[in-house]
Measured scan of single mutants.
Amino acid sequence: VTTYKLVINGKTLKGETTTKAVDAETSEKAFKQYANDNGVDGVWTYDDATKTFTVTEMV
């Protein structure tokens, strides 16, 4: 189990959250659901070296 981080650069929501998951794909699903639940829709990137997802909304 690995800890993954999500950085949110939204128009109205900014911040970070973490989750523990067995792999990046599992954490990505959880993070995308979290973003969707909070009305964040944007461009996703992933940095495997830091286990960090970033979602950026276009303004």
Rank of each mutant, 00 (worst) to 15 (best):
V1A: 10
V1Y: 14
V1M: 15
T2F: 14
T2N: 11
T3I: 13
T3L: 13
T3P: 04
Y4L: 02
Y4V: 03
Y4S: 03
Y4T: 03
Y4W: 08
K5N: 05
K5F: 13
K5D: 02
L6K: 02
L6V: 03
L6T: 02
V7F: 07
I8H: 02
I8A: 02
I8P: 00
N9A: 08
N9C: 14
G10Y: 06
G10T: 15
G10N: 05
K11W: 10
K11P: 08
T12C: 15
T12K: 10
L13S: 07
L13I: 13
L13T: 09
K14C: 14
K14V: 10
K14A: 07
G15R: 13
E16L: 10
E16D: 06
T17I: 15
T18Y: 15
T18D: 05
K20R: 13
K20H: 10
K20L: 14
A21Q: 08
A21E: 04
V22Y: 12
D23C: 05
D23G: 04
D23A: 04
A24T: 10
A24P: 10
A24S: 09
E25I: 12
E25D: 09
E25A: 14
T26A: 13
T26D: 07
S27A: 15
E28T: 04
E28N: 05
E28S: 08
E28C: 15
K29F: 08
K29V: 09
K29R: 13
K29Q: 09
A30T: 14
A30R: 14
K32E: 03
Q33F: 05
Q33C: 06
Q33I: 10
Q33D: 07
Q33R: 11
Y34D: 01
Y34E: 01
A35M: 09
A35N: 03
A35Y: 03
N36K: 15
N36Q: 14
N36C: 14
N36W: 14
D37T: 09
D37W: 06
D37M: 11
N38E: 06
G39I: 03
V40S: 01
V40Q: 02
V40H: 04
D41C: 13
D41G: 08
D41H: 14
G42M: 03
G42W: 06
G42H: 01
G42P: 00
G42Y: 03
V43A: 07
V43Q: 08
W44T: 00
T45H: 10
T45S: 11
Y46F: 06
Y46C: 01
Y46A: 00
Y46W: 03
D47P: 00
D48W: 07
D48S: 11
D48T: 08
D48H: 10
D48G: 07
D48R: 07
A49T: 12
A49E: 12
T50C: 04
T50H: 05
K51Y: 09
K51S: 05
K51R: 10
T52N: 00
F53H: 03
F53K: 00
F53L: 01
F53M: 01
T54W: 08
T54V: 06
T54C: 05
T56A: 04
T56L: 05
T56I: 07
E57R: 03
V59F: 12
V59A: 13
